[in-house]
């Protein structure tokens, strides 16, 4: 019965997507159609595939889009301002070849942040999204120290004018949520991926790693990719290509 409903919803979403977005993306929409009263499940594992060879060195559209979507504001303190996503430049010291890539929470399967969290505020949702439950975060920042990617920020200031979809407040830690509100809505994409496509780079692809028919799973199967700090065996949900 729930399968029927899901199929039905999926068909509706696909029909809408078919008119709006390029073909191929439909499959992701299909997989993401979950009705609001259904809990997330391990059937999905959301992730990103980032092709750094397509990422333009002087472009930061993903960063602005992320911070716009989630109401991450500049509090005038560059050393401590929250960064949910940032551009880093990597350079090969011998050849001098350098290129840039966006870095955010890698949504690990075994997240060190969750391991060290004393209250259980850092956790991994069944569908692979690593989040902070700010309702139980005490602001101790152990997770920030444990994260090998330095992907988390602490809020030092009183925040106003938050987005309805992204509550934020002083004294808690936060990081990329993989646009969880968009994912749950069935948008089938994230703000950063959308912005990158709009800029014409298409360096960021969002999708379900568990769905063999999704574009992301197909590309991971047929093209070379890697995890950052693969030596740590964290099985990240964000994968990289092109370096």
């Amino acid at each position: 019965m729930s399968l029927n409903r899901r199929e039905f919803l999926g068909a509706g979403a696909a029909a809408v997507a078919g008119t709006a977005i390029a073909p191929g993306i439909r499959l992701i929409e299909l997989a993401s159609a979950r009705s609001p009263e259904d809990a997330v499940s391990m059937q999905q594992r959301w992730g990103l595939l980032i092709d750094s060879s397509k990422c333009a060195e002087n472009c930061s559209a993903c960063v602005s889009a992320c911070h716009e979507e989630n109401g991450v504001t500049d509090e005038g303190s560059p050393t401590t301002d929250a960064q949910w996503i940032r551009k880093v430049t990597v350079k090969n010291p011998t050849s001098g070849y350098s290129h840039s890539l966006p870095l955010m929470c890698q949504h690990c399967e075994s997240p060190p942040c969750a391991d060290v969290c004393p209250t259980g505020a850092s956790f991994r949702r069944a569908d692979g999204i690593v989040l902070v439950d700010k309702h139980i975060c005490i602001g101790c920042r152990y997770c920030m120290m444990a994260c090998p990617y330095k992907a988390r920020s602490f809020i030092h200031e009183t925040i106003t004018d938050q987005k309805a979809d992204a509550p934020r407040g002083k004294g808690t830690v936060e990081s990329c949520t993989l646009c969880v509100h968009k994912v749950d809505r069935g948008d089938g994409t994230t703000a950063c991926a959308e912005a990158c496509n709009k800029e014409g780079h298409s360096a960021i692809l969002f999708g379900d790693l568990n769905d063999a028919n999704s574009e992301i799973a197909r590309r991971l199967k047929t093209e070379a990719s890697q995890q950052l700090r693969a030596d740590l065996n964290l099985n990240t949900g964000v994968r990289y290509q092109g370096f």
């Binding site: 979950r34 609001p36 009263e37 949702r125 069944a126 309805a164």
Partner: peptide
Amino acid sequence: QRDKTMHEGIRTKQYSLKNCV
């Protein structure tokens, strides 16, 4: 509702804080 939404991604409107506001 808060715990349902945070941890299970359940986003029904009825008891959503957003909806109250």
